[in-house]
Amino acid sequence: MDPEVFPRPTGEVYICGMSAEEEVPDDPEQIIGNPASILMLKRLAKNVSSHLTEEETQVKAKQACFLLCTDDSVPVIGEVPEVKGCYVATGHSCWGILNGLATGAAVAELVVDGHATIVDLSCFSHARFVA
């Protein structure tokens, strides 16, 4: 994901988007921003506007966010074969909020009717990762 700059009407500016592949820690307190990524985003800010230098601004927060994504960047949606009645819908990355309604409707059909008619879920099967 490329870095993005989001100016807000309040005068705040959000700069985000440095991607890295890391394991999600068990303890949420261990989730911290990568110092090298933060430095790169600060450099980006200076290139966007002379008003976004550290001398001109105050950094309010340095945060990290994990966006769950599969190796092929396609979500996994369906029933877990080894656990009857257990369904997953994961791996949407940053598109989860946009695709959540359709995913939810498809999973609801899958749970209630045993199959989804709103969308063909075959391409989202976990089976694509099984050798």
Rank of each mutant, 00 (worst) to 15 (best):
F6M: 12
L68G: 13
A106P: 06
A20W: 00
E79M: 13
E109N: 04
E21A: 05
I77T: 11
D2C: 04
N99T: 15
V83C: 12
F66I: 05
H115N: 10
G96E: 08
P75W: 07
A131F: 08
A106F: 07
E54I: 10
G104P: 03
T117S: 13
S73L: 15
G78T: 02
A36H: 11
A116M: 07
V80Q: 01
T10I: 08
V74N: 12
A108I: 07
A64Q: 06
F6R: 14
Q63W: 10
H51D: 15
S125Q: 07
V13T: 13
S122V: 08
G104I: 13
S19M: 10
L121K: 09
G17W: 00
A89E: 05
S49L: 09
Q30Y: 00
D120N: 11
L39N: 12
W95F: 13
I32W: 06
P28T: 03
V130N: 12
V48A: 11
A116V: 04
E54M: 11
F129Y: 13
V5G: 03
S122T: 15
Q63E: 10
D113W: 05
Y87L: 06
Y87E: 04
L52T: 03
K46Y: 05
A20S: 12
G33D: 00
R128Q: 09
G33N: 00
Q63G: 02
G78F: 04
E79P: 01
V88C: 02
G11F: 02
P81Y: 07
K42W: 04
L41W: 03
V59M: 02
P25Y: 02
N47G: 13
I118S: 12
L67D: 09
L44R: 01
A105H: 15
A45K: 03
K62F: 02
V74H: 05
G100V: 06
L68D: 12
A36V: 12
A108C: 05
T10L: 04
S19C: 05
D71E: 14
T70K: 10
G100R: 11
A64G: 09
S19D: 06
A20N: 05
D26E: 14
D71H: 12
V83I: 12
V80N: 04
V111C: 07
G11A: 07
Q58S: 12
Q58P: 04
L68S: 15
F66V: 04
E79F: 01
L121C: 12
H115E: 14
A61V: 03
D71S: 15
A61Q: 02
K42M: 07
G96S: 10
N47R: 13
P7I: 11
L110R: 10
G33M: 00
V83N: 06
D26A: 14
C94E: 08
V88Y: 05
E56K: 15
E82Q: 14
G85I: 05
A102V: 14
V13K: 00
I15L: 05
L52S: 01
A45W: 01
F129C: 10
A127R: 14
A108R: 06
